[in-house]
Design a protein around this nucleic acid. Structure first.
Lengths: 341, 341
DNA sequence: TTGTACGCGTTATCAA
DNA sequence: TTGATAACGCGTACAA
């Protein structure tokens, strides 16, 4: 029977007749320790089966080398790619990533925020829950100089780092593309509150209409309860049932765009000629639906990488009086079959 | 300027003229502490802005309440759903999840395993890297009674918990379904080593052919370098170029199945009548491709949940002499348009 | 019901 | 270049 005992630097020190401080330093290649000692220590550490205990080190040094990530969910392609980007950049720097899902619930978000703090994460990356209006629960990180980065779904009035795309510009571009394809009656689906990214995309849509001299028609703007195929199908049916149906649709997500195409196909409405469609995100499904869905690229992995790097950089710097700048990443119109006519 | 100082149980103790042990207990609703004291302690803790330090608690108690998750990648729909399941079950039990990607590299997997151990995670859930043949790097968890669960891609010869589907049976079912639809020449794409799940699916395919009295033809089995659209398209072209092309294809992944359908469509080969196709996983894209791809359901979230629950249960039990059982989850044939004729 | 006192494994400070 | 020793913040026997 293998009675396991934890080998500590103390055990190594005893065996080698050295001080624990020497062992600690030797294991980290501290310059003040002779090469000979370093080698000797590392060798016996290995022999004895020594395993560093990050908990003890973190407690003492007050540095956990862990980045907390708090997202609405992780199964959306955009968000899993975002995590991937965060994880890759963190791993490269020797940082771990601890992940939590708010499931778009404000309450869960508040609780998880506490939990992240209790774990004394070195930094936090967060995309806000749909429900969240108030961001006081993040104040604790500010108070402790824990770098905090909001990504994609960011608060309006809270001075922190932010990594975003220009949702207004993207909405404008998407709508403008439809206009350039000759669409005159462009519909839009929207969702969420006036603080959401969807609101900004909608504002872009409205601005593009205006700039093109197209009058906005209320019946062409449909508000959804949530981002699902079902909700989008309902909306599409409603739009196509209009006396004067739209000849183009900009949906602020690919699930919605795909659903609109499917609905149009079912009803015999030709895409793109009778109805041009453009989505958002460049999810895998957008490239599978027939006809392929035009979309707006959303650089998920890059945004994750950028967020992590901001944290890492901030940890290296003096931490005080930092400028909490906003990082904008590019989006592009990806023209595919569903809008090309 | 807000000079931040950490409020500890010691500070609370001083303020209330109580012992730290009393504070510690009161904050955890220990039964030996009077209600009055508990209330008083909690109140002043809040007032003083006390925040528990999980690091210190973990160091002391040797319990981190953290589950380490080590996966090849997290962007595949199956794996992100798996994580979601793990995260939901863990969160419910007050456990955190720390996530790492091996990117299918054996070397990275070894390193990350060390890192997980150094963080003294309470349990580990792992799906092996494609490259991994040897699992000695997990021995450290065995030696320390850290519950270890392999999920989906599990090692053949290593006595731990395993949460899997029956890949052989699933491959058999998929192939058999095609046979039931009248297919006589069924092709199969495969990938990876003889230790992979793909190998088992292939064995199921072969067994189904045999049981149906269909002779296996070598030219109908195509080996891919990796699971990508491009590789599958190459394979599909090769198959359709045959003098005697197949009338059915079983692909052990939906990306492959979708790609085969796309290739067939391009070439004017009718799916399902000229070529029936069935995939694997029930990824979102399988339900978007036209015609819809029949597939094998793969209960990702359930598997994640089951894995986490095994860890949690194991942590509660005596930890010694446990039976390291294998948990099999169900798969089903999901018949859609691509194979129905 | 509450208090005393020590240890978890490491790092940091100061001294040698 | 190395050593002695005190923290880091909390939990837990054991005592009161």
């Amino acid at each position: 029977m293998k009675e396991h005992v934890e080998v500590t630097i103390y055990d190594i020190a005893e065996k080698l007749n050295l001080a624990t401080s020497t062992i600690s330093r030797a294991l980290k290649d501290h310059h003040s320790i002779s090469k000979k000692t370093i080698e000797k220590v590392k060798k016996t550490a290995k022999e004895m089966g020594y395993r560093p205990n990050n908990l003890a080190a973190s407690l003492r040094s007050k540095k956990t080398k862990t980045i907390g990530v708090l997202l609405p969910t992780i199964t959306q392609p955009f968000l899993s790619s975002l995590i991937s980007g965060i994880e890759i950049a963190s791993q490269k720097a020797g940082y771990n990533v601890i992940i939590m899902q708010s499931h778009d619930s404000y309450e869960e978000e508040v609780n998880l925020t506490q939990s992240l703090y209790n774990n004394r994460v070195s930094g936090v990356i967060c995309s806000l829950a749909m429900q969240t209006q108030n961001t006081d629960h993040f104040q604790v990180f500010m108070d402790n100089n824990t770098p905090l980065v909001f990504v994609d779904r960011v608060p309006k009035h809270f001075s922190t780092f932010r990594v975003v795309i220009d949702n207004f510009a993207a909405g404008y571009k998407a709508t403008n593309h439809l206009i350039s394809q000759g669409c005159k009656r462009i519909a839009h689906l929207t969702v969420g509150s006036e603080f959401s990214i969807y609101h900004e995309r909608k504002m872009g849509y409205l601005a593009a209409l205006k700039d093109a001299g197209l009058t906005f028609e209320d019946e062409l703007l449909v508000r959804l309860k949530e981002v699902t195929y079902e909700e989008a199908e309902k909306a599409a049916n409603k739009l196509l049932d209009l006396k004067n149906p739209p000849d183009g649709v900009f949906t602020p997500g690919d699930i919605l765009g795909v659903s609109v195409i499917q609905c149009a196909k079912k009803r015999g409405v030709k895409v793109p000629n009778a109805l041009a469609v453009i989505g958002f995100n460049n999810d895998p499904i957008s490239n599978i639906i027939d006809p392929n869905l035009s979309t707006i690229t959303h650089p998920a992995e890059k945004m994750g990488k950028a967020s992590a790097e901001i944290i890492l950089k901030s940890l290296k710097s003096s931490k005080k009086d930092e400028v909490k700048e906003i990082t904008f990443l590019n989006t592009e119109v990806l023209v595919r079959e569903s809008s090309l006519r």
